[in-house]
Amino acid sequence: MEEHAVDLDWSLGQYEPTGESLLPISEIVVAMSEPLAGKRVVDLGCGTGNAALLAAARGAVATGVDPAARLVEVARKRAVERGLQAEFLAGDAAAIPVEDGTADVLLSIFAVIFAPDADAAIAEMARVTAPGGVIRLTSWVPGGSMMTINTVAGRFMAEVFGSGPTPDPEAPKPLAWHDEPALREAFAKHGLEVEVEQRSMHLTASSPEEYLTKSGQHPMAVSAAQALATRPDSAQLEADLAGRLLTAVREINEDPTAFQVSNNYAIVTARHG
């Protein structure tokens, strides 16, 4: 969603349903990183702790890092409930609270892609990853419900609040985290070689309406609702946005009797050259 439209706070709403829906992808990425017993694993942008907890269950020394204090607490509680040893810390991609060269595996499941300064995030990931270690992250590929909702909502908020101030030419440039040539160039500056593979996952619901209802508690949706609430015509704006989103997800729905949509995503693997 557009930064000028919404100040995104990942502690808002309920990220938990999204975390649950993305658990299968965390399982794939963690399995790709095995063996993990005895290895130091950092889960950057850990959210509710999926990747860190999966790694801990495989014997890793796992640390989850997330800027959202509420999600850090959720992840800690999940670790206790599962009897797993994992550390969860507040921190963001531009200042990872991990010592230099100590992460054998650094994972980031649809998280670092939201960092406002991609180059600073890559530099930090390179700093904390040990020689011979691996960085593995996931990013959405354009298309699918995730990108559709973000795009439609972002455009709507830009219409309501304007395009904001003139972009600062010195501001960090966005990175297409799914694009292999762009990734190779961005990571090479920090001595990292990159490989990219694409996969697909499906999201389902009983209807497009149910899918949007569940999505309505995502931090992005709640942040947008809070921004719209500052307008005197907030009720009409919220109804207009809901209508646009429903039209968009109906158009990409692959199941005429319920709701299913394919979401392509990239698994990016980076290593020190």
Rank of each mutant, 00 (worst) to 15 (best):
A258R: 10
R155I: 09
E170Y: 15
V105D: 03
A52M: 00
D119E: 11
A95Q: 05
E185A: 14
A126K: 08
T102Y: 03
V196E: 13
R155G: 09
V6H: 09
V74S: 13
R184Y: 00
Y15W: 07
V98R: 02
P174G: 04
M1N: 15
A221N: 08
K214F: 10
Y211M: 02
E2W: 13
D43N: 03
A118F: 02
V41L: 14
P116I: 00
G243I: 08
V134Q: 11
E99C: 03
S262Q: 00
V268T: 00
L22P: 00
A242E: 03
A235S: 03
W10Q: 04
V249Q: 01
T166D: 13
T247S: 08
A56S: 01
G132H: 09
R244M: 06
K39G: 12
A270R: 07
L212Y: 13
T138E: 03
S223I: 05
P167I: 12
A158F: 08
G49K: 02
L84E: 14
L175W: 00
I122Q: 00
E251C: 04
P174W: 01
R271I: 11
L12A: 05
L23F: 13
P17H: 14
A270E: 03
I25G: 07
M201G: 11
M201A: 13
E254D: 12
A79K: 08
V80I: 07
S262A: 00
H178K: 11
T269M: 12
E195Q: 15
R58L: 06
M201Y: 11
P219D: 10
L175R: 04
A239L: 06
V112I: 08
E197D: 06
P165S: 06
P208S: 09
M147W: 15
R127L: 07
V65Y: 02
S207Y: 06
M220Q: 13
E238Y: 08
P67W: 05
A227Y: 15
E209D: 14
P167M: 14
E16W: 07
S145N: 08
Q85G: 02
T151D: 04
A270K: 01
E87Y: 02
T63E: 00
S163D: 14
L137F: 13
R40D: 08
A62M: 14
A235C: 01
A221P: 06
T257P: 00
T18S: 15
D104M: 02
H218D: 15
P167T: 11
D119W: 01
V98I: 15
A176R: 09
S108Q: 11
R271C: 01
P97C: 07
A229D: 03
A62Q: 10
R58T: 09
A258N: 01
F187N: 08
T257G: 01
A266V: 00
S108P: 03
P67C: 08
E170H: 15
V72P: 01
L241Y: 12
P232D: 03
I28T: 12
S234P: 01
A153G: 11
L44V: 14
P24K: 12
V249L: 09
V160R: 06
P219T: 04
